[in-house]
């Protein structure tokens, strides 16, 4: 009974955070960035009417800074909440994140998939996305691996994802610094009704496996 109450509280906190993150991301993308874009267009219009070369160059510089800001805000928004998860699905969102991950950390990610992708509720897709994101971040931080693999296995009523690296691995008994992240991933999966497993061996790498009924 107590465990259920704790699970509900935990689920409520996680969902509230996700809702807030989504709200901020959409506000950035659809509110602030739209206004910035209007300003950028306006600057271009003003620039075309300026005759003085010095002022024209200054206006061009401002437009360029505005363009950079629009791009930064867009990337910040996507970093907070991957819009593609509702439009193109979980696999597309993870592929897009994997590309960003390689650009950031230089770790190459191979994505494989078997079976037909099924539609899942947004909340469950986000749970899986966040767990994959955490697993990849752990690879960048601790594994010292140059590449990793994500394998999706879609079945009629379940999804299994394996995230493997051939990095330095760690002792599950003493890898204390990672335990909070691992516990958070496990908790997220349990709340969503799924399972979370991790196996690791020093010098041989780590495999995170998650399963979720659809």
């Amino acid at each position: 009974m107590e465990l259920n109450a704790a699970n509900h509280a935990c689920s409520y906190i996680i969902q509230s955070q996700e809702d807030e993150i989504k709200r901020i991301a959409l506000e950035l993308h659809e509110g602030i960035n739209q206004n910035l874009y209007s300003l950028y267009t306006g600057l271009g219009y003003l620039e075309s009417g300026i005759k003085e070369p010095h002022m024209k160059s200054y206006a061009k510089e401002m437009a360029s800074l505005m363009e950079r800001t629009i791009q930064e805000v867009r990337l910040l928004s996507v970093g907070l909440y991957p819009n593609t998860i509702t439009t193109l699905g979980l696999e597309a969102a993870i592929k897009s994140y994997a590309k960003l991950f390689t650009d950031t950390f230089g770790v190459l990610i191979a994505i494989k998939s078997s079976g037909r992708e099924r539609t899942m509720a947004e909340q469950r897709s986000m749970t899986v996305f966040r767990v994959c994101q955490e697993a990849l971040i752990n690879i960048a931080k601790y594994a010292d691996a140059s590449s990793a693999e994500i394998q999706f296995t879609w079945k009629e009523k379940s999804l299994k994802i394996e995230i493997k690296d051939a990095g330095k691995g760690f002792n599950l008994e003493s890898g204390i610094e990672r335990f909070t992240g691992i516990a958070a991933m496990k908790e997220r999966m349990l709340i969503a009704g799924g399972q979370f497993y991790i196996s690791s061996e020093e010098g041989k790498g780590t495999t995170v496996t998650i399963t979720l009924p659809i």
């Binding site: 650009d103 950031t104 950390f105 230089g106 770790v107 190459l108 140059s146």
Partner: peptide, 8 residues
């Protein structure tokens, strides 16, 4: 390693 080549 070669990771620096892919960092952008």
């Amino acid at each position: 390693n070669e990771k620096y080549k892919y960092i952008s």
